[in-house]
Design a protein around this nucleic acid. Structure first.
Lengths: 132, 132
DNA sequence: CTAAAAAGCGTTATATTATAACATATTAAC
DNA sequence: GTTAATATGTTATAATATAACGCTTTTTAG
């Protein structure tokens, strides 16, 4: 079992929005969607995002500057993340593959660097978009 | 053999700067360093960067919004990139490991997506920083 | 060759993403 | 119940990136 994080009000509002979204959300999209709930400033959004990323409830898709909810119950802290990104429809899916994560977590480069984290983004066309 | 790209003046100026740098450079750092050479506006920098990325002469480190020269003669088009990033000194190295690239290029996820590209960033502490 | 297409350039303005700084409030730990 | 840590609200601003326009140069195909 992992530590339960009791989200604060702002964190909960923002997590709920991201969690129910079918696509990654950008910070200012989030802002415009939560203004009716009293979150008025970018910084309020970024602070909540920072915390949610830190505790692994959401992930940042670096190539898109957007955020999605963690779809992988085992990555409570986001130290090993992999995503597939459709370059046509922009659908993003978190990849949960123990073979892949094992391979990458054990990867050693020749420079002798000690890795504590990785992020992998695959790009291509999803099934739907291939046939278009 | 791959296609030789003749860089234009702006592209060459900017590539030279990135290539001789020991660390990833940000767009506005680049701008301030090439103003004496007549490149005055952000867009001139971004256009050159876009092209240099497209032809594989440089790569963007997504987590840092910064650019480094390709250190891997075989990746003329940047479709398969991997980097190690030291979270202490911010040193970035391009990983050139045929086992890794083979593994990732052949990776198939269960969603049946066809991948044409990937980018992997490892984070940790480099040898120097571990002992500090 | 040479005309047409493609790529690049220079410039101004502006959009988008993210953080600094400061005062106050809430929560958790002892 | 005081203290330390975390979170909040707010204003301002920094940092990153693109839109739109007109013009020039280079490449390509006939």
């Amino acid at each position: 079992m992992h530590k339960e994080h009791n989200l604060t009000k702002n964190q909960q509002i923002i997590f709920n929005l991201i969690d129910k979204s079918s696509e990654p959300l950008k910070a200012y999209t989030i802002l415009s969607n939560v203004q009716k709930k009293g979150i008025k400033a970018p910084l309020q959004v970024y602070r909540a995002l920072d915390k949610l990323v830190e505790i692994g409830k959401i992930h940042k898709i670096e190539s898109r500057n957007a955020f999605i909810a963690c779809q992988n119950s085992s990555c409570q802290v986001s130290k090993a993340t992999a995503f597939s990104i459709c370059e046509s429809c922009e659908k993003v899916t978190e990849i949960s593959n123990s073979n892949l994560s094992k391979y990458l977590s054990n990867f050693k480069d020749k420079a002798g660097m000690k890795y504590s984290k990785y992020n992998l983004e695959f790009f291509g066309l999803c099934k739907k978009c291939i046939t278009k």
